[in-house]
Amino acid sequence: MHIKRVIPIAFIIISLLYIVFSFTVEERKMIGDVRGWDPGSRAMPIGIGFIMLTASVYLTYKERRSPGLEEERREPSIKRLVILTVLLSAFYILCFRFLGFIISTHILLFTLIYFNYQQDIRWDMIPVFSLGLLISTCVMVLFYSIGRYISRYLFLLGRKFDIPMLKGKIFTAGIPFVVLLIIFAILLLLLRKAIKKGKYHIPLVAGFTAIGATEFLFIVFKQIFWVSLVKGLIFW
């Protein structure tokens, strides 16, 4: 069935469920209010539920009459990519706290970029993909560790000799950033031919982009803005 016909029907169900829900809303009197007069907790949800129901019934009726909604011709490979993206994002959210920011973000980026470049998902891609993911993850962890080691060392040094400059964000985040950028650039330069074309073109592009983006996000959000990105498996 065409999506334009599915959506209004889905909304009929959603709004019916919503109406049922709104009648179960706990109608507690407004705190300490003896006077009453408050329309109450259910008034809005019920009203909105019925408007939503009316609109979706009307749209269902209308789409039913409208001719010429042929079955969409969507490439199955793109459908697979959409499903992969959704499933992987869900996996990302569920495993975020266990795997930690670095590993889970890296896996998400590498996998998506890899298959997006292939423009499809087939079984025969899996071996190269898995090996690429494994190697890339190791490089990622190494990369992270270098940055982490530098900022920790700088910080402890700054504290030991009481150098406020070394304790500041600009240095603890800036120096590792520059060092990692240089390493990244050297690697990029060394492997430039393999990245541009050849057998390992795609895994290399995916790996480099994933590692660079993950580390960049980590430095921006964790080291500059102190967002507590979960460490997970990488406990150091």
Partner: peptide, 24 residues
């Protein structure tokens, strides 16, 4: 596009996380 879209996705997810970044 193959790089752009995953990048947007990750930035969206990490960004949503960062809004309440102290409350895991």
């Amino acid at each position: 596009v193959a790089i752009l879209l995953p990048a947007i996705l990750v930035l969206s997810l990490v960004g949503s996380y960062a809004i309440q970044g102290q409350a895991i």
